[in-house]
Design a protein around this nucleic acid. Structure first.
Lengths: 273, 273
DNA sequence: AGATGTGAAGCCTTTCACAGCC
DNA sequence: GGCTGTGAAAGGCTTCACATCT
């Protein structure tokens, strides 16, 4: 390879450089590198090897180097990466050089917690407005911000130059809120409601579903149990394998391991309690 | 293809069927399908086409069919999937046929909200114990559960047959808590603390970092701004492109787009403003 | 006719291994 | 000698398109 412009710079002289067209997988890891770098900086290190940074970020070093190489060439062979320079560069690419204003919709259980979450403020964001549909919650003050009624969203979002909307409402309200945010010109949404959102082209939605995370873990638990039990023999005391577990027997009614009958085109209902 | 056993059934007759060795990407989507299926069931549908379910789950139908085919063959050509049967099957694979006990460590801001989150209970989990290191919080009752001191974790986890640990402590405490959970025999951890956890082989960790989600969105905002501004011209009023934004100027100290100094070892810097 | 299940192709991501530079 | 940056290989995931079955 030869001369290295910060990957993807525009041709037009003096122009704002177009961002490198990073692979999504890389984008998703940059924040993790950034966090690790801030830790290193605080610890007083001013350079770090790909090996060291990779360990701090929980990835392997080849992946880290490949990721960073997409940003351009900011390391020094034989030495490593300059911590401050790299922080700088990643913050620039992620668009963290100015603080983005975030609107949080839904100040129930979860919303309340998010409104008070210090990690947002410390990592480049400012919660600029809180909304709720419940009139009894409007006016409440949380962390120095007053909860406004959702009907004010359109106007307030424009005034506050909201860049990102966070949805922490029940699923039933989420699509309506989304439409409002989109109408207000918001093009990035973080959705905590357990549902799929329809948005126009050009609007990005990321989803966080806490129950899904547990269900994925549950799969692996189930899997580990089925692996360690089979080539052993006595499947005792393992609720994962016993048809009638020792755990409560609730909502997702217990079922036989394998589907039953499955004969005719008919369905053999088993889900009933 | 011919006769279809529930993919990966063990040879041993009457044995608990080994779980199919699903691709991770598939595992991560099954909970989404499950949620969509529950919605359909509530709406009274008892069959659904791959097209219909895919739409409800926000994926394309080819992907859905491929995912489901890994579970075995539970659809009917010309008809679609039996909703109840499929719910059944996915719940079995995910290990949701019995309710897993979850321990939540850290009842601060976020932990409080998680302790009260109804979605856990309704989707296959039971919060069985709450822990905190702060003595002033021990004894507090949240949602019918009493907060215990973290020192009781080892004993309580065994008693309550804890299957999954959720960490909602500050990052500084997370590794200690992890070690405790692991010592207590917990092999699945959901980590909300912004840090990397070291765990022994065989322990699964999933991570949710709220700030990272926003930072990923920030990247796309930044990117959209740089794309729509360049081939336009007048880069007015866009804090993404103006060096001195209209937004607050805070924590991640505002920087020039391009790294400073950085003279010698040169590559033609273009990123400068 | 209609919809599933699936080889095969294409794309993206990760890993390897080493040339190149300090 | 040490460490980055990167082609090339390997692996995994998604999409296509159609054979197959009801």
């Amino acid at each position: 390879m030869s001369q290295h412009r910060p990957a993807g710079a525009s041709g037009r002289a003096g122009a704002v450089p177009a961002l490198p067209d990073l692979p999504e997988a890389t984008v998703a890891r940059l924040p993790e590198y950034l966090r690790a770098l801030h830790n290193l900086a605080e610890a007083g290190d001013d350079t770090v090897s790909s090996e060291g940074l990779a360990a701090a970020a929980g990835v392997n070093s080849a992946k880290l180097r490949k990721d960073l190489s997409h940003l351009g060439s900011y390391g020094t062979r034989g030495v490593g990466y300059d911590v401050a320079l790299l922080i700088h560069q990643i913050e620039y690419v992620l668009g963290l050089t100015h603080r983005r204003a975030v609107a949080l919709v839904g100040v129930g259980n979860l919303g309340h917690a998010l409104a008070g979450y210090a990690g947002f403020a410390s990592r480049g964001f400012r919660i600029a407005a809180l909304f709720d549909a419940d009139p009894t919650r409007v006016g409440e003050e949380i962390n120095g911000l007053t909860v406004r009624h959702i009907d004010d969203l359109l106007q307030t979002a424009a005034e506050e130059r909201i860049a990102i909307g966070v949805i922490a409402t029940p699923a039933s309200a989420a699509q309506r809120v989304t439409d409002l945010l989109v109408a207000a010109g918001v093009t990035s949404i973080l959705n905590f409601a357990p549902c799929v959102l329809a948005v126009p082209e050009g609007v990005d939605v990321r989803k966080v579903d806490l129950a899904i995370e547990l269900q994925i873990l549950s799969f692996h638990e189930h899997r580990k149990a089925s692996l360690t039990a089979l080539p052993g023999g006595r499947d005792e005391a393992d609720p994962d394998l016993a048809a009638t577990g020792t755990e409560d027997t609730a909502a997702p009614a217990p079922v036989e391991p394998a589907p039953p009958g499955r004969t005719r085109p008919t369905r053999t209902e088993v889900v009933g309690s």
